[in-house]
């Protein structure tokens, strides 16, 4: 791969697709429930169903504490869901239960390693996936500009701004050779203006990349700006209340948010969210 690659954000050496009868679902969740044990058990997920097609950008919106991060951790193979008949968790066609490493996961916090410089942090996921260290860093270097980190390859994480840290965490995620991205509130901690810039930027990067993405956010406009499909989650225990297709033309920008269709979709999502808030309505 060279620096002049026409699609620079594509993960180099993505693994081959699922063998034979390729399932079109890149992410498949069926009947997933999860209760955190402890002194006061927390029922976080209740019978969650969700599918995301290959190459789609999907978002998961819901009130905070409803189990969005938990669902991503299940997909990342880090949290085992309750066992049961018909329970399925598939990433890229493979069972992801207690099998980490199938998707590239960006946790809610940026979790940069303080002892690695920008390049080292960017290359972490690729390195852990078995790509030789030098090669991983070379790939990271070619993408620094695209992720707005050029000139900072030797900076320590503590020397970067909030926006740069988030972009670096995203670069680390994109560099992992996986076909599914799980992004947990990547812009959560940013101010509104930076956030808007980052959304447009992510849209561009993803368009060049065309990997499947599942983004967690509590920002409805962010979800509508970026996604092909939006899943709305209920209050805890989290269930999927609605699956809303977003058929707006890309690239989406400021004009999109001002359009009538956008407004209608936003109202629909907000209405679903509000309905999910009243306790009585959480029963099917």
């Amino acid at each position: 791969m060279t620096a002049t690659d026409a699609r620079p954000a594509r993960a180099p050496e993505a693994p081959p697709g699922p063998p034979g009868d390729a399932t079109p679902e890149a992410i498949l969740v069926r009947g997933v429930s999860l209760t955190y044990g402890g002194e006061t058990p927390v029922h976080a997920l209740a019978d969650v169903d969700l599918t995301v097609q290959q190459g789609q950008f999907a978002s998961l919106v819901g009130p905070s504490g409803c189990g969005k991060s938990t669902l991503l951790r299940v997909l990342a193979g880090l949290a085992p869901p309750e066992a049961g008949p018909g329970v399925e968790v598939r990433v890229d066609g493979q069972d992801a239960r207690e099998r980490p490493g199938l998707a590239a996961f960006k946790p809610q916090r940026d979790l940069l390693l303080p002892w690695r410089r920008t390049l080292g942090n960017a290359a972490l996921g690729a390195e852990l996936s078995g790509i030789p260290r030098a090669q991983a860093r070379e790939q990271a270097r070619t993408l620094l500009g695209r992720f707005g980190l050029e000139g900072f390859e030797r900076a320590w994480p503590a020397q970067l701004s909030g926006g740069m840290r988030q972009r670096l965490a995203l670069l680390r995620t994109f560099l992992a050779p996986r076909r599914v991205l799980l992004l947990d509130e990547p812009f959560g901690a940013l101010d509104a203006l930076t956030r808007r810039d980052m959304q447009e930027w992510l849209q561009e990067v993803w368009t060049e990349d065309q990997r499947t993405a599942l983004l967690v956010t509590h920002d409805v406009e962010e979800a509508l700006m970026l996604s092909d499909v939006v899943f709305v989650m209920s209050h805890r225990p989290g269930r999927i209340l609605a699956r809303i297709e977003v058929d707006l033309p890309r690239p989406r920008g400021l004009e999109t948010t001002a359009s009538a269709e956008f407004g209608a979709l936003k109202a629909e999502v907000l209405r679903t969210l509000a309905a999910g808030r009243s306790p009585g309505s959480t029963q099917p």
């Binding site: 880090l78 490493g101 590239a104 996961f105 979790l111």
Partner: peptide, 11 residues
Amino acid sequence: DLVELARSYGA
């Protein structure tokens, strides 16, 4: 969380 991050990449 850092350990989990590494494990999420299959470490």
